[in-house]
Amino acid sequence: MTFDEYDAFCEATGRSKPGDEGWGRGTRPVINVSWNDAIDYCNWLSEKENLPKAYDNDGNLLDKDGKVTPDPSKVVGYRLPTEAEWEYAARGGNKSEGYKYSGSDNVDDVSWYWENSEGHTHDVGTTPTRHKNVQPAESIRHTHDVGTTPTRHKNVQPAESIRHTHDVGTTPTQRAWNL
């Protein structure tokens, strides 16, 4: 999520905005937030879109009926991806075409990291070789395979880069991550 997205959450809920280390806000990825801050954002975004909250006050996942579930596939609202989902997305999902990274065998083509970032964050959707107009939500946005019916899916915006919806009973290998 970007600073713009998280700042809107802070303004709507009266929270203090996190610091940006002097690197800038806007479409840069939000930094200096905790896991609890992130799940609060997920719940806020879910409620804003009339979806059930994804987390209870203890950080447990909630199903569509508000009952604690260990199964991420039962969650309807916005939630953070699991470790396995992050790895799947980072490797390009089912669109990986055999690349080592999401879209290339060369990490500099697709990612900012400590060696090429000049020690600071950069706008979401940019890479060292392509500095503009990479789809911001491409980082981890979840979509569906042809023939599945998502519960809600219309013109996904960057804030939905952490939204994870799918048909009950599908597995990560049956889903497509847009990368």
Rank of each mutant, 00 (worst) to 15 (best):
W114L: 08
D167R: 09
A89G: 15
T129P: 00
A90M: 11
V156Y: 10
S111Q: 07
R152A: 12
G125T: 04
I162L: 15
T127L: 05
G98T: 04
T165M: 07
T149K: 14
N155P: 00
T126R: 08
T127A: 12
A89H: 01
H153C: 10
G119P: 07
T121S: 15
I162H: 11
G169T: 07
K132E: 10
A84V: 06
Y113F: 15
S139G: 13
H142F: 03
A159W: 08
G93W: 05
R152Y: 06
Y113L: 03
H144L: 09
H131R: 15
Y113S: 01
G98A: 07
N155T: 11
H120K: 15
Y88H: 11
K100P: 00
G125N: 02
D109H: 14
V156I: 09
S139W: 08
D105C: 08
H164S: 11
Y99C: 15
N155L: 10
R141N: 10
G169I: 10
V168F: 12
H142A: 12
T170V: 12
S104K: 06
T149E: 13
Q174F: 00
R175Q: 14
V168G: 03
E118R: 12
D145N: 13
R152K: 13
R152P: 00
G92S: 07
T165E: 10
A159S: 10
N116P: 08
R152C: 03
P128T: 08
V124G: 01
V110Y: 06
N94E: 09
G93D: 01
D105T: 06
V134A: 05
Y99P: 01
K95S: 11
K132Q: 11
T170I: 07
H166M: 10
T170Y: 02
T121W: 11
R152D: 07
R163D: 08
S117W: 01
W114A: 13
T126A: 04
L80E: 02
E115A: 14
V110S: 06
D123G: 04
E115Y: 01
P81K: 04
H122E: 06
